[in-house]
Amino acid sequence: MTTPPQTTVGAIRDGSWQRYLTFSLSTWVTIGLLIVVTALNVALQPTFFTTYSLTSNFATFAPLVFAAVAQAVVVIGGGLDLSIGSIVALASVVALTVMDGEPSRVAIGVLAAIVTGVIAGAINGFIVGVIRLQPLIATFATNSVFAGAALVVLPKPGGMVPSTMTTGYRSLVIGIPVSVLIVVLAIVLYWLLSRTRLMRHIRAVGGDRSAAFASLVPVVRVQMASYIVAGAFAGLAALAILANTGSGDPFVGSSMALDSIAAVVLGGIALAGGRGSGIGAVAGAIILAMVSTVLSFMGVPTTWRQLASGVIIVAAIALSVVMSRKDQR
């Protein structure tokens, strides 16, 4: 214990480029999985890198990408949000109702989705941070509140999304599909967030609540803020869903709680909190989405596809969790 052994961290000088290539074990798992699913996709679907294919693939990923970043922020802060899916549903039906198919009201719709997400997030944050209920069960309960609220706003699937949104979402900007840019936007937003004092504090609270409290971090406020930020990202996910499907559906987020958590785990974010990055969650979401396209292109019968993807996801989660624990040592 007297002199610590020269670790890789120490051997590589601060500020050198190698620093950017020293990843933790769980990051390597994420990168490895991403390469494998991409390779499989390309092998099975030679048209994968054409703009048409990229547009439609990324258009399908994008909602989950935002939901995964939302979940990532909460999980890094040591919490959990099982209500992400119904926040997405609620924000989407509110935005849909506000826009009412009018292209001129897209801007208000965007604002409405984000504000709805922020309010829902603030409710979660208040319950978890101030009232101090266990995040798992508290957000499980708010999940049904938000899901019910979505049904109140839009009792059954329907409605029309302004055409500008749907066509814009599938168009190209200087040769790059908008849906790809939107996924890039998610990464940029997270990167910007990671430069804020808030995100630093979120990581600290997730890493060790009591230590953060002793280190002058306003823990309760930070916890609330993490759910609010997540709500805002959920609002963006709702917009992506609207743009992708062209109509409203109050049940749209039902699988998103599981998918966002799976994406977070696959992205190398420790569920114990404090560790990982929202960019990992983006990768996790893409891995998850590509697993299902791979299965369909492999010709797995529809009735078996869900079982296959379920087993693959559980296996991948197990791998990530085990590797992430090895990192901790």
């Binding site: 990581r203 600290a204 890493g207 404090g274």
Partner: peptide, 19 residues
């Protein structure tokens, strides 16, 4: 009260970050 997954610099200014 150090946070294990933050860096030395991040820990040293924790709670008093200039922003």
């Amino acid at each position: 009260s150090l946070i294990p997954h933050l860096t030395v610099a991040e820990n040293l200014v924790l709670g008093t970050e200039a922003a």
